[in-house]
């Protein structure tokens, strides 16, 4: 009986292994899924862009305009975000193209992704014009 029925500890280990496998599989599936990556890029673009604005304004408001010169850590973080925004804009734009090409998502979702890509391009263009992106 003992041989035929795993102990409670063994059962727990099996379940833990199964959970880990499931998570690993899920991560792998998502990281190789263009649709998931495209959506992640657009979510990241929206979040980082707004985060950049909030952080930049916060630092200038709390530390004064002189933070543009003295560059405290938070300002250094803020001025590093436009490069991330540019990468996420590129990913969002590519994701929108792939979505239309492969016809995944609904039409509405594809249009939304495309609009976000355009907004990202506009945002990045202005960040460039304002000197945050060294192009």
């Amino acid at each position: 009986m003992t041989d035929q029925h795993p102990s409670q500890q063994q059962t727990g280990q099996l379940h833990g292994q199964a959970d880990r496998d499931r998570v690993t599989h899920g991560v792998k599936r998502r990281l190789t899924s263009p649709s998931w990556l495209a959506r992640a890029a657009s979510v990241g673009l929206c979040s980082i862009s707004i985060g950049f604005l909030i952080l930049f304004v916060f630092v200038v408001e709390t530390g004064g305009n002189v933070t543009l010169f003295t560059r405290p850590l938070l300002m250094q973080i803020a001025v590093s975000l436009p490069a991330v925004i540019m990468v996420l804009t590129a990913a969002t734009t590519i994701g929108a193209g792939i979505a239309w090409w492969n016809r995944y998502w609904s039409i509405r979702a594809r249009i939304h992704q495309s609009v976000l890509a355009l907004l990202g391009l506009g945002f990045s263009w202005q960040l460039t014009k304002l000197g945050f992106l060294p192009l």
Binding site: S42, L45, C46, S47, S49, I50, L53, H112, V115, L116, L119, G120, G122, F123, W125, Q126
Partner: peptide, 12 residues
Amino acid sequence: VLGTAVSGFGLS
């Protein structure tokens, strides 16, 4: 451009 982009990001 910045206003439209940020509005779109926020609404999304």
